[in-house]
Computed example of a mutant assay.
Amino acid sequence: MIRAPLTPKQRERVLRAATSAPSKHNTQPWWFRWDGDDLEVHIDPERVLPRADPDGREAHIACGAAAFAARLGYASLGLGTDTALLPAPHEPLYAARLRVVGAAPDPRFETLYWSLPSRRTNRAPFRDTAIPSLVLEYLRDAARDEGTWLRVVGREPAYEHLLTLIRVATGLEDDYLREERAAWVDAPDARHRRDGVPARSLGPRPQDPTGAVRDLAVGRDTPGRGTTAFERHPTLAVLETRDDTPVQWLVAGQALLRVLVTGTRYGVAASFANQALEYPDLRDEVASEAKHFGTAQMVLRLGMGTEVPPTPRRPLSDVVGPRTRHV
């Protein structure tokens, strides 16, 4: 049977799913191009942070997450897809191509699709309620299904070791890094922008600034934020890949979003504690406890959270080509 082409509404559905993906400081470092009903995902180099992400690793992860979200958008239309990562070796910023195939989508994807609108980076305190062990296993399964490993760090001394590395990295932040971040976090023109992290999404300041919660606006006066105590013992997890290559960064991004939306389905909230991964020596230390895949790509703070406001997204007209590819 010949399938009808996607309608404009269906294309919009896939794109809105893709652009719901998380990215560092909500930079949204992607643009998309349609080729028939197939979707190309490209890295936008102008939205890669030169100090915080000099190799573009986290931009690749964000684009991998966008590719997985697009897979969910296609699946919600009853369409299976095949995903090629870095499909054109001579175009290193051409991150992924999603091709519609005749096979049915993964039957679990439609449920995950409907969790996308509720998935939000949660920088607020979590409840002092443990994540059920069965739900943690679901999160591990989600990571495994995408070819990665989610290492939940629960025992000592590994837990305190990871917290110590996060604290050390927080103390290493210099003025240049904070200046770069300030261009995206509660920026002076935030009310007119459709990217970055607005003040309403920062959450309160932690009373203990040496914990797993990163204050993205440290040292700045943000009216109305306040200060509060956070959970005493957040669940920490490290997303790992086999290797540390651009392809594996994209794999990590797909796994990341699958983990996050799976958690959303069961009331698990997440924020990122990636400070230590921004310094090569500390990143190696994060991976030193690994028993499986061994390359740390993301550190997640997980818990049972409350609802928080969404961060803005750029209009689709800003993120869809045609445009000149960057070679």
Rank of each mutant, 00 (worst) to 15 (best):
G80I: 06
S76D: 12
E160F: 10
N274G: 07
A142M: 02
F272M: 13
L256M: 13
S133E: 15
A62W: 02
W30N: 10
A169G: 04
A212R: 03
A290H: 00
D284G: 14
T311Y: 04
A52C: 11
G253A: 07
A212L: 04
A18D: 06
D44T: 13
R33E: 15
R155Q: 12
G196E: 04
H161M: 13
G321L: 05
R258A: 02
F32P: 06
E240P: 05
A287R: 07
P310I: 01
L316D: 05
L85S: 05
L300G: 12
G196Y: 02
P234M: 01
M298E: 09
R314G: 06
V251G: 04
F126I: 06
L162N: 00
V101Y: 02
R167E: 15
P310G: 01
H60K: 11
L239S: 06
H42G: 02
G171M: 03
P45L: 12
D174V: 11
L116M: 14
P22C: 10
D145L: 10
A270G: 03
A276F: 10
A96D: 05
A190M: 10
E240G: 05
T210V: 08
A169S: 07
P198F: 00
A158Q: 14
V268K: 09
R220Q: 12
T148F: 09
K9Q: 11
A62C: 09
G196D: 06
P188L: 06
A18Y: 06
R127H: 15
A17F: 04
R127F: 13
L239A: 06
D44P: 11
L93G: 02
M1V: 12
T83A: 15
V268L: 11
T81M: 04
T235M: 07
E240F: 01
Y74V: 00
G64R: 04
Q28D: 08
P223N: 09
K24M: 15
I43S: 07
R140Q: 12
H42M: 12
R258S: 05
H292Y: 14
A199S: 15
R258W: 06
P312K: 08
G102Q: 11
L112M: 08
H192T: 13
L39Y: 04
G171L: 02
P107A: 03
V213W: 15
F109D: 15
L136N: 07
P5E: 07
R13G: 06
Y138E: 15
T222H: 14
Y159M: 04
G253Q: 03
A142K: 02
A104Q: 11
A212N: 04
P87L: 00
A17H: 03
D106H: 00
D55W: 02
A65E: 13
A237M: 04
S201F: 00
V259D: 01
R155H: 12
A270I: 00
L202E: 10
T148C: 15
I43E: 11
S133Q: 11
F109I: 00
G263F: 10
Q297C: 04
L39W: 01
L116Q: 03
L172H: 09
L112E: 05
